[in-house]
Write a protein that binds this DNA or RNA. Structure first.
Lengths: 249, 249
DNA sequence: TTCTTCGCTTGATCTGCATCAAAGGCAGAC
DNA sequence: GTCTGCCTTTGATGCAGATCAAGCGAAGAA
């Protein structure tokens, strides 16, 4: 279902390109793209596997091709907070730093497109296009982080759950499957515990609020993971966010 | 006391420059710097004044020269969460977007060094150095945002307060005044309410925890704003963070 | 001087979520 | 088939921090 991605998204930002993440785009097949192709390689991880531990050496940068990875921070006493959720086409790693700042974990089977940091950095100095694209992506991530901060600091448990569901629904490629009526179907890529780590809650509270949303008819559950949202607007109502819509318009 | 800053920090990243934020640095006085000088202008704001409202047109980017500004998000019902704290040398504004995503407010008297977005962006495409520097700064901000997320999601009120004090102490230029003994003196640039908005708490809880830290001898208070930290390590103990030190070594 | 305002502190009470605990459902191993 | 382990749900209870409320002190205005 999902179209494969790789780091070509770095040099690839044609607003009018019909398939935004195609591995090769006629308009973007430039020198940069070809040079990237030469130094890239792929790595696979199984669900549950750790990609790197916080503090460990990380001598590559990468973008997610398929699957989902998380960035988490852990306190000495074991309290955990997820600080990043990496979906296909997302970038991880920081040029100019050699150790990972967070635990990176595959929550599903995962394929990443990697570049050893050295040649990537060398390339970056020679190709302004890449630094600009990377800046753009980083600014998007910063915006997402700031919305996440509002969620963590000020939203109720119910609002947090609704917001997370809305975020995942928005980014899930399978949303193309949605029926005309505004209903939406997708699979949760996270366990209750991972949702809790995302939201700054306990897994029990997550479970209770999921049940409550179900009881109130905001969502339907098939099994633990398969979600049906009969009315996306009703879900958005629960997030506490401004109802700008903006999505599905 | 504070050394003036301006956007020269954008093209200026000499690790061995003795005064990292000098307005002009011999090693950095390049073409870029001179071109930046030509298009920059300054704006001043009084304490409490709003620089831009979320959603408004924002046709410039800027960096803080002196004073402190905040980025906040507000929900319809009035709940507020601070999502950024801008100290001297910090950058605000996003190339490639024309409206502000957050309220930007001066919490003290504020001077900013501004660039109209158009010429700035034009310059950026011609000078890879600037995009790279901006990327680096944005990545730093992203890291700060992620640490902030851990704070918001998992820390207790007491840990939040201690963390905020540690963050401000770390960044306050006047820390050079610290006595040999590891004690530290600084002025809080925020009201109790602003601290609460930063930390995802109420102002009452902030006040209570400040009193508690004072009672326990972690901090001393002179008036409402002037803080003395007799033992910085003791404060760090309260933050819940790994005691990597790293600072003041 | 006194009044008002604003930022702050402190007390009393309430409540949303955490914590502790038990049990159900499902998948994979044997 | 049963057993085992993991994820999840649900219930009972407790507590950290929110909420409601009162009052203080300093700065400025009349």
């Amino acid at each position: 279902m999902a179209v494969p991605h790789d780091l070509t998204t770095l040099v690839h930002d044609c607003a009018d390109c019909p398939i935004r993440h195609r591995a090769v785009c006629a308009r973007c097949e430039t020198d940069e793209l070809q040079r990237l192709e030469q130094i890239k390689y792929y790595r696979s991880y199984q669900a549950g596997q750790t990609v790197v531990w916080s503090g460990d050496r990380m001598d590559f940068v990468a973008s997610v091709v398929t699957g989902i990875a998380t960035l988490t921070q852990t306190m000495e006493d074991g309290r955990r907070q997820m600080v990043g959720l990496l979906l296909p086409s997302d970038f991880v790693g920081r040029p100019g730093r050699s150790t990972a700042a967070y635990d990176v974990t595959a929550t599903t089977d995962l394929v990443m497109c990697c570049f050893r940091k050295k040649p990537f950095e060398e390339m970056m100095t020679g190709t302004p296009h890449i630094a600009q694209r990377l800046l753009e992506m980083t600014l998007d991530e910063l915006d997402a982080a700031r919305e996440w901060m509002l969620l963590l600091g000020r939203k109720t448990a119910r609002e947090k759950i609704a917001s997370l569901l809305a975020i995942i629904a928005r980014r899930d490629a399978s949303l193309k499957l949605r029926a005309a009526q505004g209903s939406l179907v997708f699979d949760l890529p996270l366990t209750r515990e991972e949702m809790a780590d995302y939201l700054g809650l306990t897994l029990e509270t997550v479970s209770r609020q999921m049940s409550a949303l179900k009881k109130d008819g905001i969502i339907e559950l098939e099994g633990k993971r398969h979600i049906i949202v009969p009315n996306f607007d009703a879900l958005l109502e629960e997030t506490g966010d401004d109802s700008d819509g903006g999505f599905l318009v």
